[in-house]
Design a protein around this nucleic acid. Sequence first.
DNA 1: GTCTATAGCTGGATAGAC
DNA 2: GTCTATCCAGCTATAGAC
Lengths: 213, 213
Amino acid sequence: MSGIPNGNRDEAPEGRVALRRKRTEDEIVAAAWDLVHEHGLGSLSMRDLGERVGMKAQSLYSYFASKNDIYDAMFREGQIAFAATMTITPDDLGGDESPQAELRMACHRFFEYCTSDTARYQLMFQRVIPDFVPSPQTYELAVETLGLARERMLAAGLDPDRDLDLWTAILTGLVDQQISNDPGGTRWERLIDDAVDMFFAFATARAGSRRNP
Amino acid sequence: MSGIPNGNRDEAPEGRVALRRKRTEDEIVAAAWDLVHEHGLGSLSMRDLGERVGMKAQSLYSYFASKNDIYDAMFREGQIAFAATMTITPDDLGGDESPQAELRMACHRFFEYCTSDTARYQLMFQRVIPDFVPSPQTYELAVETLGLARERMLAAGLDPDRDLDLWTAILTGLVDQQISNDPGGTRWERLIDDAVDMFFAFATARAGSRRNP
DNA sequence: GTCTATAGCTGGATAGAC
DNA sequence: GTCTATCCAGCTATAGAC
């Protein structure tokens, strides 16, 4: 179906070819990340990318049907890394497993994930590429990760339906200001713990007043 | 110096020519706003712009030396509107002139300013245009407007050096989430009052504990 | 000041030989 | 699967006639 030439040998020739193909695809995507880190997300071009992996730009179309498909592969990688980043185990917390400590760690993790790679941040959360829409499968993964935040909030005794949006606003606000107004610095990073305390105090007070009106 | 042809009449010929020129410049900038609203900030082109005002793209260079100069004029207009938006008089507050009420109004104003025109928001706060740097004069105006927020915070009995960055993070976080995840909706707009209460409670508690440690 | 003509550059993508 | 050759489209900006 994909037009890959297939030999006549029995020893899983398709497997070998597919493996080789997969390696090249990964190499292309890795090179794409390099380029967007160097020149910005929007400046990625097929010509540059081809040159970086040692082929002509036109040859890339043997691996990806379009430039957007490359963005999609990058988006997918970013989504997987994001899920891994936001998965917090009891081990990670080292002793203090209070809901507040977990929220704090989640906030630090999110902040680090976003600010450590602003090109990735733009691709995944800011929709900077016109006409790029992530494929349904990758989107599904994103929804799954948001579910982690919901569970965490429930475990903290808070009401996700009421507080989750406020929480995400605080997270993205810290990240956004850091990237826009103090790139490479720590001016907003230093406020993370304060922000978590602020949010937690407000949300628990609200949950408490609902229980004892 | 600018090569404008100058007649020999005494009745302020330069004034009339300059006025006409200014009108055309304003018309061009207004058309630029229209196009940006229709097709997005990054999609503004000199061709489209020329067509919209009824001239060839090349003729625009008689009025603006470059495309960036047009962006700069737009940025300047946005900055002036922003200053006007964020200036709150006692009249605006209608009765409740408490610091908290003023913060709340400031937040609503900021939110409305940003979400009502996302192209303008991108131009002014997100630096989406590569190689565009606003001219020093317009930047000066921006600093001035931030001063308003400082004063407001002082008047509220809070410490700007400590709380202003947290405040701006909350504002931009609400805006960012609204634009990215519920464009045209009110999902985060509805959280403004909660967010202000949250911030105010936290900041005043901190100010209080410093006074009575 | 406005036009035509054009330079000069970037980009994505396809056709077909090998 | 990779190449050459090519198409087609978009863009900013300049030169020079009128």
